[in-house]
């Protein structure tokens, strides 16, 4: 199972309990549509795209996405999230060939 590079960013960097922050998730993935041909061999490049992304906050599902091949290469997904407690954000993503990967990031709200 190929290991993919991915990244979670929480913006702004400094936040308190009760704030609404933005969570950005980027993953390096080809997102092939199945409509493209290899220039050298002339063969059709088979479909390969992420079809399911789930955002968890302390093991509680906060957002579920069903995505299709019309999302750009190296997809970027951004949602809002309300900070209620320290913990972690986990993103689980699957693609149409059965690859399942996940990425986590710690949530550390500032006091006061």
């Amino acid at each position: 199972m190929a290991k993919r590079k991915s990244l979670i960013k929480i913006k702004p960097k400094k936040y308190k309990v009760g704030d609404i922050v933005r969570v950005d998730f980027i993953v390096i993935h080809p997102m092939e549509t199945g409509l493209r041909k290899d220039k050298k061999t002339g063969k059709v490049i088979p479909m390969h795209y992420i079809n399911d992304v789930q955002f968890f906050y302390n093991d509680r599902l906060i957002t579920k996405m069903i995505v299709w091949e019309s999302i750009s290469t190296n997809p970027y997904f951004s949602i809002n999230m309300k900070i209620t407690e320290p913990g972690r954000v986990k993103v689980v993503y699957k693609d149409n060939l059965g690859e399942v990967n996940e990425k986590t990031k710690k949530v550390k709200p500032r006091k006061g």
């Binding site: 750009s72 949602i79 809002n80």
Partner: peptide
């Protein structure tokens, strides 16, 4: 392109991507 299912924990209904 994308179907996003939100919950009250999101705080605000917002979604961004590239298509």
């Amino acid at each position: 392109c994308a179907d996003v299912f939100l919950t009250p924990y999101n705080g605000k209904a917002y979604f961004a991507t590239r298509i």
